[in-house]
Amino acid sequence: MPTITFLEPDGKAHVVEAQLGLSVMEVATRNDVPGIIGECGGCCTCATCHVYVDADWYGRLESADEMEQGMLEGAVEPGPLSRLSCQIKVTDAIEGLVVSIPAGQL
């Protein structure tokens, strides 16, 4: 199982094992990572699972579609590395992924 690191704004790290086939949001909520809620359940509708992807990782992920980009514009403190974690699938290719939780979501 790939390992994902979730960083809180103060640097506190949550390092968790991610089950293949889930989304990064689902991994976060199942491991009680704060600030990632996933209210809509992962269908790109609420933006409560917004994260900043580590700069080295951002370009390695499949890019956000139009719907996700639209949602991100209105997310909490959006930035150039913003993604909705419900739209990132856990595969072996994301071993070591690092994402940060926006301060405004905590």
Partner: peptide
């Protein structure tokens, strides 16, 4: 099909 409008309308 207008997610931006939804998000800003929310605010």
């Amino acid at each position: 099909g207008r997610p931006q409008d939804f998000m800003f309308a929310k605010k």
